[in-house]
Design a protein around this nucleic acid. Structure first.
Lengths: 143, 143
DNA sequence: TTATTAATCTACTGGGTTTGTAGACTTTAA
DNA sequence: TTAAAGTCTACAAACCCAGTAGATTAATAA
């Protein structure tokens, strides 16, 4: 399951994607419209800013806005940033690999294969899921 | 990520699958060989017994053994039992559905689709992953 | 019948993570 | 120069995971 933090991040991003190239959006605005606790959202946006997904502008008339294009932001990078590994087992993770404590010997472990397959499929599907796709889908459903 | 509980469960099951139809196996034996805290393992095995995956025999010469055939126990049922939902979002879960707090309106949410796809693929792959497969794979790797 | 073995059950606990809050500080535009 | 808005550090409540303790029940062997 994705954490609340990650879900908040996705909702905030879709909201910002809707307003792409329309200038900075206040944290307060995002927080109210998406019903996210403002202070918590601050930390989330800051993290995405540090990851160069968002930019911010300080002072009056400031706020956050998408740095990358909506078609260049996919779910994989958001999930990795917010929650960490995509894989269901650490010993099968590409970006957050750790040897399995439980396994006596990774090389002869019969369990890993299945989860490698799941990881690959998830990676394939979610790296194709961009903010642009989600926005498009949202508009379709609102017709 | 799967919980330790779930990983322990899978390892214990593979261990029991190796000893299928060879009589009851002591908790103590499983705990030592798979390096799982005994008391914790007790709770795990009990849960799987209640779910009719295992049977147990009390008293001297007792222990746990597979009730289902190794080819009839797949990863999906184990994960659901130990960790709950397979899906990454509650609003997309088949067995543990809950409406998304974050979403204003589920019907017009552009986010869900992507995660429905991931859920379906995961379900497809992991319901084909049985203890029998894992055991076979383990034997291959040990050659 | 009794002793022993091993599973069953209830309750509890420590620690870490997640979620969220408070408040001082900095930057910018008008 | 003042008000608006992001930045940063610190803290705290709530929850859950992982693991422990100990009494109880059931089965077997002697």
């Amino acid at each position: 399951m994705l954490s609340k933090k990650c879900k908040y991040a996705i909702h905030a991003l879709v909201y910002l994607a809707e307003r792409y190239q329309q200038g900075p959006v206040h944290i307060q605005d995002i927080a109210e419209k998406q019903r996210i606790p403002k202070k918590f959202l601050e930390a989330i946006l800051l993290e995405m800013r540090n990851a160069k997904i968002l930019h911010s502008k300080k002072g009056k008339g400031g706020g956050y806005y998408l740095y990358k294009k909506p078609e260049d932001v996919n779910m994989i990078e958001i999930i990795r940033l917010m929650d960490g590994a995509i894989a269901m087992l650490p010993c099968v993770s590409l970006n957050y690999y750790e040897p399995c404590e439980e396994c006596r010997d990774e090389k002869t472990c019969g369990i890993r294969d299945a989860f490698t397959g799941v990881r690959d499929e998830t990676l394939k599907l979610l790296s194709k899921s961009t903010l642009a796709h989600m926005l498009k889908r949202q508009k379709e459903l609102n017709k």
